[in-house]
Write a protein that binds this DNA or RNA. Structure first.
Lengths: 342, 342
DNA sequence: CTGTTAGCGCTTTCAC
DNA sequence: GTGAAAGCGCTAACAG
């Protein structure tokens, strides 16, 4: 298939030194003499040598590769994070392997296998729904496992893993406060996927802020969704059926808000005239739909790069202090769907 | 860091056979006796063994890993393809490594290095702007290099690489024909990035279809863009400045169409009342904006999986007929921006 | 059908 | 500062 690729032997021969010296010249130039270094450099150029990663990995017992586990690469919410991760990893000399969870039935096992088979040195988990038990079982309880969570913390054992994410409770409170400040007194909430911790956090924020303003929390105004566009549309139907409709809705994410708005509109209501809508995430369509969707902007690129940095830190310097969790602020972005109430 | 991981030796000891037998039992179960196979299987389970990929790669001179080179993972246009590629690869037992081009200055060299360093067996190129000379130099001219292009064919040497893509000329003709059938006689075109072959193909389709209908091609109606949202908005300004404005516009991609529409609207024109707009790609926002954008739907997932299949074919069966290029049909999706002309 | 053996290309002691 | 030699874990001859 290929031309036979040059090995370190070829370089050694060409430079008239031993393979050990070539290796040293390449990994830590200060450990060889100037003259040797130059001859090696020249020989490398002449032969077109590149280190064989497989051999290096086998010898060094690491792969300089990160694994990113995510539910759906096609979902921009995740792919933006992935992009930032890849960039961070690449700058640190790490390659990035991806595992999309949609694929195989057994999710966690695939990851464990990758880790165990020395294909990757560490894992970034962007997905709230991956089973991590298999992964965790590989490690001594008192060691720091090379796993970082992004976006979602986890229950059980995994709750001790470091997580980089937005402060969902605080951000939700900001959104609800915004609606209240616009004069809304009755605000509905469309929740996320019941299995997700994010759902709980945003619901909590919604409740807390209402209570802080002395507004009663009405169960009737909490409509179940699952983060999908369709569930937002379905929630709109429930919303329309309410005898006494609230003047505002806080949707647990943007996708549902888009579905909600589109359905509401079909029914002849106008946004924000008849109902103000707030979302969460600031995905691209939030900006492009008309009117623009007011939402909480999550800095997904930042989350991604912080997570990658934390993981690389663990991998390159195991004696450093173990990575800490980060909770980032999300920023309120006001657009057309919450125009001033007149 | 880890507990010491079990090796094939541990399995062999536990099963009371040689390592070679374990290896055989694992890679081709038919080559060992039933009894042996069972004992090995059991031993594998007991020890929790997983093959060390680094060792296997070193020995077999392959990595069972694909590299996907793309300009921007965060761009949904590419990430949907990436998703399909990853799924296809995973099903065939290949891992997927990503290289986002935004990162490093030297683009092509990074890829060549990955290939040469045995980190990956083949490359899928989703990006029209990556320099491939370095990659191609690695291969004998008469060998099939393990590189497949998706979306964009290339000039020069690389033009001989197989490419999987939409039939841009034909699809553009379809769109223009649609506009003509709606009664439009003067149709503007906003072009893509001058460096891109896609730009040329879509422009060609635009021209051909006009001519086929006996409509003169007016240079004045061909406005330069670069595929970005902003360039669509800028093109709208030029469009507005035309003394005799056409009644329809065919934008070379959806992003520009979105920018165009938003700018046109700011100027007080209505879509499609004052101008009909057609795009290309069918990205998600095309469906979500109001009115919905009429566009050519590219089956990006299909392109991705076909490309991955072709590459895996080359890698697993080098004696098979070399992969051929595919040109897929794109489908016209009619939405609000080209409502019937009355 | 199974065991023995060599060696993939690299890094790392251990000498000098 | 450099070389010799061992060995990471696996698979592919080659025998038997």
């Amino acid at each position: 298939m290929h031309k036979r690729l040059p090995t370190i032997q070829d370089v050694a021969r060409s430079a008239g030194v031993s393979t050990a010296t070539v290796s040293r010249a390449l990994t830590d130039p200060t450990r060889v003499s100037d003259a040797t270094r130059q001859r090696v450099t020249l020989a490398v150029r002449e032969t077109g040598y590149t280190v064989n990663q497989a051999a290096r990995s086998l010898r060094k017992q690491n792969s300089n590769t990160l694994l990113v586990a995510l539910p759906d690469i096609g979902n921009p919410f995740f792919s933006v994070m992935l992009d930032a991760i890849e960039r961070t990893a690449s700058e640190a000399g790490f390659a990035t392997l991806i595992a999309s969870r949609k694929q195989a039935g057994e999710a966690g096992s695939k990851l464990a296998e990758h880790l165990q088979s020395h294909r990757v040195d560490g894992v970034l988990v962007l997905d709230g729904s991956i089973a991590l038990d298999g992964l965790l079982a590989l490690h001594d309880p008192d060691e720091v496992p090379p796993i970082i969570l992004a976006c979602e913390e986890r229950p059980g054992l995994a709750s001790q893993l470091p997580v980089i994410k937005s402060d969902n409770v605080g951000a939700s409170r900001k959104m609800v406060r915004h609606l209240i400040e616009l004069g809304h007194q009755r605000i509905a909430h469309i929740t996320g996927d019941p299995d997700s911790i994010v759902r709980a956090a945003r619901l909590k924020g919604y409740r807390e802020e209402l209570i802080a303003h002395g507004i009663p929390v009405e169960d009737e105004l909490i409509i179940e969704g699952d983060f999908s566009l369709e569930s937002g549309a379905a929630a709109a139907q429930q919303f329309l059926a309410l005898s006494d409709r609230p003047s505002a809705v806080f949707c647990s994410n943007d996708m549902m808000a888009v579905g909600f708005i589109s359905e509401i509109r079909t029914a002849g209501l106008k946004v924000p005239r008849d109902v103000s809508v707030g979302g969460f995430d600031d995905i691209m369509v939030a900006e492009k739909i008309w009117p623009g969707l007011t939402t909480m902007h999550q800095d997904r690129a930042r989350i991604g790069s912080l997570a990658a940095e934390a993981l690389i830190q663990v991998l390159t310097d195991p004696d450093a202090t173990p990575p800490r969790s980060h909770f980032l602020d999300a920023e309120l972005v006001v657009r057309g769907t919450t125009a001033l109430k007149t």
